[in-house]
Design a protein around this nucleic acid. Structure first.
Lengths: 233, 233
DNA sequence: AAGTGGTCTAGACCACTGC
DNA sequence: CAGTGGTCTAGACCACTTT
């Protein structure tokens, strides 16, 4: 008989990937339906489904009811970035972490900010500027706004021991967020904190998080020159 | 009775997320086991399992056999970046794309390159330099090495109409890759191509892809100043 | 040894969608 | 209407880990 035995959905996933990468099933082509594949692999349909869903998540196939499953023509590769707290990022590199608070003040949201984030006018905000070190060298400059209506305990918090970064992760959960990565020229303030020349090319992360459409915190992280953010495809 | 009805694993996932974000289950705490949750939700255990696996993938809970499921203490947020071909990236912004090949040459791998990528010595490589435009403005400078042993057709390929970028996606599948993002100062060559000042801060992507441990192509993409790569959390 | 998650099965029904 | 994937179920066995 032609049937081959495969064990576990991961084995099936591997085999399906092989058939795509070896061009057994060519881009744009339709692949057999789940019932037939289940019979071929000698397993239940649900097992094939599990494997196939992985491929769909990875963008290697497009699935539609009735029309079936097609091999994606221009697969859009997906890279997953893990966004750890900065202390863990430093420690994962085998370096010693510490940080310092450079500035702290309370302000009220301007009309523009209120409008942009749909906040009540004059909402009280806490602004914090701090610097993270790796082995005593400046690593990241952090400039952060916190919505005190969402995290009132932040107003009296002491962020000398635990960083704001870490405190918020543990105390201000969010349901949604956006993040942007870019290259910027270091401002005078950032350059001074990082001990580099003004205008140096610095990797920048801007992130805003929301709890049910209401902003919790917004942060700009400026990394010291030479930083690379890496992951696998 | 206390049981509530939920329909579908997504409804259950939402409810589980709510209990975590509302601190019904606090960070570090153990959550009820799947059998109990299934009874509470009035569904099969497999349905709870499906929902719970989503949370585990998102890093919100840690699961271990026997010890059960714990709410993650310092959730490591994961952002998924979609890496499209550049033409699609430009067109997705509603702009017109075109590109130009700036340079093309064949070279042999140096000892260093051979060693780094475990290539046979003197492997023939194709180097291509090209520029992508968005609405006639320089958008990305692309500098790419192609392993001709892996993609021999590239040697005679005409990349005036279709970009190398797109050609490789369709013709040189890979099984593995790494990618790094950073901020760099534009080199003289890059600055000239992008029509900006030398030393400008530019967002840079470096990517190498492999087919079963053998490198297929390695590329450095330098984006025009101001570019931001965005996604949601 | 026992508790928990990981996975599989066989079958069922539903939800889309192309004809 | 009919074909396909999406999901659910009840039950089973296995794999891993702690005790």
């Amino acid at each position: 008989m032609n049937k081959q035995q495969f064990h576990g959905w991961q084995a099936i996933e591997t085999e399906l990937k092989r058939r795509i990468s070896d061009r057994v099933w060519r881009p744009g082509e339709q692949v057999p339906n789940e019932v037939d594949l289940a019979e071929e692999f000698g397993c239940a349909r649900a097992t094939v489904n599990r494997a196939m869903q992985q491929l769909a998540d990875a963008g290697l196939v497009d699935r539609k009811r009735k029309s079936g499953t097609l091999v994606t023509l221009n697969p859009v590769r997906k890279a997953t970035l893990e966004i750890p707290i900065i202390r863990e990022e430093v420690e994962a590199r085998g370096m010693k972490w510490h940080h310092a608070v450079l500035g702290r003040k309370i302000a009220r949201a301007t009309k523009q900010v209120s409008a942009r984030y749909k906040l009540p006018e004059e909402t009280r905000l806490l602004h914090l500027r701090s610097l993270h070190f790796a082995d005593r060298m400046p690593f990241v400059h952090e400039s952060r706004w916190i919505n005190l209506a969402r995290a009132p305990e932040a107003e009296t918090g002491n962020f000398e021991e635990i960083s704001v970064n870490e405190w918020l992760v543990q105390n201000a959960p969010f349901t949604r967020g956006d993040i942007a990565f870019s290259a910027m020229s270091a401002s005078a303030t950032e350059a001074e904190a990082l001990a580099v020349e003004k205008g140096s090319a610095v990797f920048t992360v801007e992130r805003t998080t929301f709890q049910d459409d209401s902003p919790v915190t917004s942060v700009k992280l400026v990394y010291a020159p030479g930083y690379k953010m890496q992951t696998i495809l």
